[in-house]
């Protein structure tokens, strides 16, 4: 057995690292790898077509888009913004943890907001900073609060998205496991995603709590 097909993995690594067109890199790697394994062009194209069809279910999450588009054009974003604005501005940590909870619940319902652009920049980071108004924040603290706001959005987003069974991640897992002959249903995947959505929330809550403590101690000193 030749090790040539491993060059396919190298194409992906290089292509992603050098920031080539991601979509094209993936298809080129899918075309070149079986060629290197010694398949004929016709066989390779057949394999490509078959694999595309076998994995159509991953794109099923598009079916949710007409509904999301419709509620979006009827003010979904405004409602979410209003809800976040109503958060009690007790401390920066509490604002961020409450935002994370909202983010996780919405994600589990399949509402994947563009958090960093639509919420963190205009809303969450300024609110976290504003709620620390009574503290004497150094420049490093302000920088920390910005970084923490972005981090909380990522943490909430990543570890709750697979709780929604029609998310692209769940469908990708299900489809890949099917082709590896160990099929698992999207519903089961969503179910087993719940523990880490909860664990990540608890961890982040404690993490934010500790940050509040530290900022408050600084104020007294």
């Amino acid at each position: 057995m030749s090790y040539l097909p491993l060059l396919g993995v190298l194409i992906i690594l290089l292509g992603f690292a050098l920031k080539w067109d991601t979509f094209a890199v993936v298809i080129i790697a899918a075309f070149v790898t079986p060629l290197l394994a010694g398949m004929s062009i016709t066989k390779v194209l057949t394999l490509l077509g078959q694999s595309f069809l076998d994995n159509r279910m991953v794109s099923l999450y598009f079916l949710v888009l007409p509904m999301i588009g419709l509620v979006e054009s009827h003010g979904l974003r405004q409602v979410a913004i209003n809800a976040i604005k109503k958060l009690k501005r007790a401390t920066p940590g509490k604002v961020l943890s409450a935002y994370m909870l909202i983010r996780e619940v919405l994600n589990a319902l399949g509402i994947s907001l563009n958090g960093q652009i639509a919420f963190v920049r205009p809303l969450v980071a300024p609110m976290a900073t504003a709620s620390a108004a009574s503290y004497k924040l150094s420049d490093a603290d302000k920088e920390l609060l910005k970084g923490r706001s972005a981090a909380v959005d990522n943490l909430g987003n990543f570890f709750s998205q697979n709780c929604f069974m029609a998310s692209s991640g769940v469908l990708l897992i299900s489809s890949t496991m099917k082709s590896l002959k160990h099929g698992v249903s999207p519903l089961q995947i969503a179910l087993y995603s719940i523990p880490f959505a909860v664990i990540t929330f608890i961890l982040t809550y404690v993490y934010n709590y500790l940050m509040d403590k530290r900022l408050a101690v600084k104020e007294e000193a």
């Binding site: 097909p5 396919g8 993995v9 992906i12 991601t22 979509f23 993936v26 298809i27 790697a29 899918a30 790898t33 079986p34 394999l47 490509l48 078959q50 694999s51 595309f52 076998d54 994995n55 159509r56 991953v58 794109s59 692209s168 991640g169 469908l171 990708l172 489809s175 890949t176 082709s179």
Partner: peptide, 13 residues
């Protein structure tokens, strides 16, 4: 379309 393409790549691999 990228997730489906990555799944396709997985099958091809």
């Amino acid at each position: 379309m990228l997730p489906q393409m990555l799944a396709m790549l997985g099958s091809v691999f």
